[in-house]
Amino acid sequence: MTTPKIELKGVQKRFGTKVVLDGVDLSVDPGESLVIIGGSGTGKSVTLKSILGLITPDKGSIKVDGREVSRLTGRAREEVNRKFGMLFQAAALFDSLTVWENVAFGLIQGRGLNRTEAKQIALQKLAKVGLGPEVGELSPSELSGGMQKRVGLARAIAAEPEIIFFDEPTTGLDPIMADVINDLIVTTVKDMGVTTLSITHDMVSARKIADKIAMIYKGKIIWSGRKEDIDNSGNPYVDQFIHGRAEGPIKMELAK
């Protein structure tokens, strides 16, 4: 039995009186692609941010390569985060830097490469996501949403991480650009053999990039399995979500 790359056990987090994570259990094996699906406000983002150390959970354990990381700070945390790459929902590119400096950021600041070397690598990574070297000199604000996502992907893979996180990779893109991003995720990830953890509410995207799918609802994982099995999950919550039905066990909390 192999050690899971990422393992969460009984992770709890509350903000004030609102319980956001109510005992999340998850496990991702090396080289596997897990997609967490779920509606807005069900705890997807908080789960991701807990693993990254941006949020400290109240209870429970988070292990990366078998090592407990949920309470690490400072240098030890930076050490763990070197294994990670992350594509943010709105790309989160640094607008004070050019595109290539964004892609090279982790190489220069995190790994201490010199700028010439880092630029070479950055341009290679940009080419990998289908962007030419001329894009590298632009500022992020000059790019379209789809291009920003691609630059974000190039930045996430630049330092060759072992684990990549995708936060709503296709949200806000047209269907064609969304498919381009999905393809890029699949090819870059398969190329590098990395482990990925994604969160999305886009089922088309989930079916394309996942090996395994887990559904989160009210701060708990209510179903998980291989993506082929999701249509026969026998779980009414999952069925309602993947078919996008307003009627079912999941009630939208609308103000009356």
Partner: peptide, 13 residues
């Protein structure tokens, strides 16, 4: 815009 979170994920304090 999550740029501060992005710094952390790029191992920069």
């Amino acid at each position: 815009t999550e740029q501060i979170d992005a710094l952390t994920t790029l191992s920069t304090n």
